[in-house]
Write a protein that binds this DNA or RNA. Sequence first.
DNA 1: AATGAATGAGGATTCATTCAT
DNA 2: GATGAATGAATCCTCATTCAT
Lengths: 201, 201, 201, 201
Amino acid sequence: MPKVGMEPIRRKALVQATIAEIGKAGGSLDVTVAQIAKRAGGVSSALAHHYFGGKDQIFLAAMRHILTLYGAQVRATLSIAKTPRARIEAIIHANFEAGNFRPPEVISAWLNFYVLSQSLDGGARRLLRVYQARLHSNLAHDLRPLVGGDQADDMADKLAAMIDGLYIRHALRDHLPDGKHACDQVLDCLDMMLGGNHDAT
Amino acid sequence: MPKVGMEPIRRKALVQATIAEIGKAGGSLDVTVAQIAKRAGGVSSALAHHYFGGKDQIFLAAMRHILTLYGAQVRATLSIAKTPRARIEAIIHANFEAGNFRPPEVISAWLNFYVLSQSLDGGARRLLRVYQARLHSNLAHDLRPLVGGDQADDMADKLAAMIDGLYIRHALRDHLPDGKHACDQVLDCLDMMLGGNHDAT
Amino acid sequence: MPKVGMEPIRRKALVQATIAEIGKAGGSLDVTVAQIAKRAGGVSSALAHHYFGGKDQIFLAAMRHILTLYGAQVRATLSIAKTPRARIEAIIHANFEAGNFRPPEVISAWLNFYVLSQSLDGGARRLLRVYQARLHSNLAHDLRPLVGGDQADDMADKLAAMIDGLYIRHALRDHLPDGKHACDQVLDCLDMMLGGNHDAT
Amino acid sequence: MPKVGMEPIRRKALVQATIAEIGKAGGSLDVTVAQIAKRAGGVSSALAHHYFGGKDQIFLAAMRHILTLYGAQVRATLSIAKTPRARIEAIIHANFEAGNFRPPEVISAWLNFYVLSQSLDGGARRLLRVYQARLHSNLAHDLRPLVGGDQADDMADKLAAMIDGLYIRHALRDHLPDGKHACDQVLDCLDMMLGGNHDAT
DNA sequence: AATGAATGAGGATTCATTCAT
DNA sequence: GATGAATGAATCCTCATTCAT
């Protein structure tokens, strides 16, 4: 059994274990490094510290991981869409129906990172900003051809807010979140906005 | 010299101290009972336990308090409004501009309760549901005369989601949240919904 | 059994336990808070933290305590001496024969504080300086009438150095330190200095 | 590509790194093997263990190294001096002005070894004794022709103590130690002793 | 009514040390 | 010859919580 090149493997396992463990804890960040380490192949908690430097960094890495998945999901969906309208729909879909972004653990973890970003110093907050900015700019970019630059920003704000709002409400529910329905709600709104805007359309 | 009838006073002080301390902690629930007790007039942490039974209960009480304020705020605003439309606007306003519901501490605290409701056992979650249900039913009730029962529910969902989404985004910002702007965004949406609806009607 | 007013008692016990435990550890500061707490009446280590705030503070307090004893010892001896010469002798005696300042534990602890003052931030170092300054100024003050201000400082330096040197060498020995002998050595030197000086005068 | 004959090189590097690292740590022995290894050319901490067997041994080796340097210094200076008096001066000089024995790191390290010799088992203590004995016998040897065997021992004691005392005081100062001044102080004392003794001289 | 005293349990973190390669 | 991987044990420290007064 080879004993070299374990680092990336361990890192990955630890990040995944972090997310899983948070999910198992009902979404709370009240998770010990020991728990995480145990789930990550039963390694020692010292190893987790060795690789990440501290609990905060572990959380940060997990957050970054989720955001990476999210980004990939969005990009993948976008690559298929051709028209601006299709692209907007794709973005919305990515938020609610994305494969890897969907599992309950991920939702819980995400939600907590979202809030805890306030206490986790610096890094976490910055990460959140990136997410928010990306969502907004993605939406605005494809709204512009449809409604013009004037309204694109504003509409993007609204849609983004609604997405976050729905996402969070989902996380708080007991029953499995219904991504499809959430999606439809946002799309409804989008239609309304476009409809109201383009009287002629 | 211990006075009689101190209990309600202490309780109030402790609840308020809890909210304040959470705010001071940047919105995090990482607040010790000792800190809370100290801020609540410098009482002993033992007293806090004596009155509430435990830290969770203290948090719960604080949450309940915020929700009570919120409810009062909504009711007050509603009592003035006369038309359904005015009532809907009042509800939206209550969420973003309400006097006691607004201070940053409260926002932070609220946001955390919102998320942490998952870990705080039972009670907290139930409380959140009440809030969500109330917001929804308030909106739906006054939307019904405008758009009919079919759509009222759905629109209430959307508006509520947007409110939550905006609220949370506010809490994550550095600069002081701009309640007015948030309000306008929701109202915009409302108009759009009503406009789009009326056309069709 | 009264349960109030324990703080000063516990503090004292903890400080003494610290010194004792360091002595038991062969003079090393490799002593855990738990060990200290156990020896201090078997209290919990948490209590030690509660009262002192941290391990460093505990050490600092112990150091301060030793220095206080030392100061008291010097003062007591000085109060009896009448002539400058007698006072100088008293100071020297205080360093080597002082009752409370003598026990091996104290020597060990002192020696370690002496050295560790470099790492213990700020406070410890300051404390050491106070000790050194006091020893020097005590000596210089009483040398002045005998040899004049010009030489008093210089002689005080030398005597102080010799005292420290002897003290440290004592601490490193296995057999019980011979305070009397050390004393005599310094006094010898003093005589030499005074003798040599007088000749020249 | 691992080279042969690296062992002595690595050992030297590790010993030097130990001394340097202790100096950097403000003289404290709170230095990790990892730090030492990194400074010693970035080798792995495992290598340090491989060569020395343990942290204590590393420290011991560093101590031994310093003592070796010290011994060489003394011998070198002694080889030039011709008269007993010159030889005594040479010994004193070697303690305060010796090239390799002087750098602040070495002073710090030395002082710590000096004290910590108590906890480092056996070996360290023995090493210290060797140093003390050597200093004493060196001095005594050359004092004998000057003052006779009776007093030589006693005077050597005093001078050695003063040397140690000054040395330690130097190590505790912030500003760079003034070796010249220390030297002069001891020489002053020596003169006094010789003068007082040899009235006829 | 209120508190000081005290604790136990647990968690993050650090490190020397070992081992297979 | 040298190292990355991994760990176990220890230590500091924090806190909610309890209890006698």
